[in-house]
Amino acid sequence: MSEGVEWALHSCINLAWSGPDRAVSAARLAAWHDLPAAYLNKQLQALARAGIVSSTPGPKGGFRLARPLDRISLMDVVAAVEGPDQAFRCAEIRQQGPGGGPAASFTADCAIAHAMSRAELAWRRELAAQTLDAIRQQAEIQAPQAPQRLRAWLEAAR
């Protein structure tokens, strides 16, 4: 999984903390965690295409959450940034080389591909079951001052 997923998840939480009436630029979101703005902007655009955030152009534009955090799952963000493809792709190497060929029987699915598919399904179900609101709540328990610090920092930039 790319670091873009982590960046996108943090950006969603930061947008929630910034408030529903404030659009935050990609550059400003990136500066909060000292990230490259151009790369973070790509992640935010992917979130916008998925309907997770909305963007407003112009000098006072930026990004806002498009829906509440309790309606955004970890899987929503992962799929937006990484795409819908499965992490494991079986290339059927069992059919190649001396172990493959016409004498071998390959009528059943590859046991490795089957096991990896089951594991990925469990992983995706777990990500889909966790909302960003639950993550926000945990973050606020761990760092209760974080939302106010972010809002004050954004205000100072105005």
Rank of each mutant, 00 (worst) to 15 (best):
A108L: 10
D70K: 03
P147V: 08
I135P: 01
A103G: 04
S54H: 10
S18V: 03
A38V: 06
S117M: 08
A79K: 14
V78F: 11
A156V: 03
P102I: 07
Q142V: 05
N41V: 00
D133L: 13
D21G: 12
D85P: 00
G99F: 11
L15G: 06
M1D: 13
Q130L: 13
R28Y: 02
I52C: 02
E82H: 11
R136A: 11
R71V: 02
L47F: 07
W7D: 15
L69T: 02
E120W: 03
H33Y: 02
S73M: 07
V77A: 03
P59W: 03
A31F: 04
F63K: 04
P57L: 04
C12G: 13
G4K: 06
V77C: 04
K60Y: 12
A115N: 14
D70T: 01
A122F: 06
R49G: 07
A111N: 01
L132A: 04
L150M: 01
W17A: 13
E120G: 05
L132N: 05
A23M: 02
E92P: 00
E126P: 00
Y39S: 13
E140T: 01
A128F: 11
S117V: 01
A156R: 09
V24L: 00
G62F: 11
A113K: 09
Y39N: 05
L132Q: 03
L9A: 09
L127A: 14
L74F: 06
A108I: 03
H10F: 11
D109H: 10
A31T: 08
A91H: 12
A157L: 15
V81P: 10
A143G: 00
